[in-house]
């Protein structure tokens, strides 16, 4: 190679390199998603199906309100559990494994900035959580829809001498109020946002953790403390009282390290028929965006100079 050619190699490299490339991020994200799908994680759908279909038959002697409430409780509970497990275990399983297997060497020795690798992994896992929640929601709404219609038919049949139109309308209104409603989608969205924050926590831990197990344990501890964070802050720093700069700083650090996950548990209210304000949903979306930005930045700082 001549001197001119070699000189142009340097210029080419500088000119061709993109500081941030969405296509590279998407390649890593889609690869992460494919990896998890081929690890057969969607087998969980079988467990979920058994759970919610089983919930229909376990409580036959209950009133229809109780029966539908239990179905919604079990479904939302299972969705929260699966989404959180996917986000924490998925993140913990993939990044430390890439380091242990040295697969990361082959990725980072391509023109891929470390930040893109982290963001790609995070998006891949969040994408998987989103797809799994969509699948679970379809199943949940379908079972609930058929159950509410089944209950309505049963209730009408139970009225001696046949139900009048007014009675039918009343029953329909009362039963359907406990059935499939648009608010349920907001409940699923809140579960998704909570799982995304949990994935962010696991991402931070996996950048300094030495093993998958360590990442899972630490992330789960943060996840559980996150549910009690608001109570603890309220106890130590009660509202309405004046707090010094140091106290505010400590409260801020606690709020970043242990995200307030209790805020995302809005499905209890949705199950009992409470309405959810748009402001609250925007607040949750904003909070998730804030946490994911902060966690991505912290992960990058920790990972940028990590010796591989």
């Amino acid at each position: 190679m001549s001197a001119d050619k070699v000189k142009s190699v340097k210029e080419d490299l500088v000119l061709q390199h993109k500081l941030f490339s969405l296509s590279r991020v998407w390649a890593i994200a889609f690869n992460t998603f494919t990896q998890l799908v081929r690890m057969k994680v969607f087998y969980f759908m079988l467990i979920f199906s058994v759970l919610i279909i089983g919930a229909n038959f376990l409580f036959l002697n209950f009133t229809f309100e109780q029966e539908l409430k239990i179905l919604k409780d079990v479904s939302f509970g299972a969705m929260t559990l699966f989404a959180s497990i996917f986000s924490i275990v998925g993140t913990a399983l993939l990044i430390p494994k890439d380091i242990e297997d040295r697969t990361l060497y082959t990725i980072l020795t391509k023109p891929v900035p470390r930040f893109e690798y982290l963001v790609g992994k995070l998006i891949g896992i969040i994408f998987l959580v989103a797809v799994s929640l969509v699948l679970m929601s379809f199943l949940f709404f379908a079972v609930l829809y058929f159950r509410q219609h089944g209950i309505l038919a049963e209730e009408i049949k139970m009225i001696r001498g046949g139900a009048t139109d007014a009675q039918k309308e009343y029953l329909k209104e009362t039963i359907f109020a406990q059935g499939v409603r648009p608010e349920l989608i907001l409940g699923v969205l809140a579960i998704f946002l909570k799982a995304a924050v949990a994935a962010g926590v696991a991402l931070v831990v996996s950048t300094f953790a030495s093993s998958t197990l360590f990442t899972i344990i630490v992330s789960l501890v943060v996840y559980f403390i996150g549910h009690a964070q608001s109570l603890a802050l309220e106890y130590y720093f009660p509202e309405g009282q004046m707090h010094g700069a140091l106290q505010r700083f400590i409260a801020g650090i606690v709020a970043v390290v242990f995200p307030n996950l209790q805020m995302f548990n809005i499905f209890d209210g949705i199950i009992t028929g409470q309405s959810i304000s748009t402001t609250l949903m925007f607040r949750l979306i904003g909070l998730t965006g804030f946490y994911l930005t902060i966690y991505s930045m912290i992960s990058w700082i920790l990972f940028a100079k990590k010796e591989l």
């Binding site: 080419d12 490299l13 061709q16 390199h17 020795t109 391509k110 023109p111 891929v112």
Partner: peptide
């Protein structure tokens, strides 16, 4: 610099 790996295979 990440750009240095633009023409490297490892």
């Amino acid at each position: 610099e990440t750009a240095s790996r633009g023409s490297v295979g490892f």
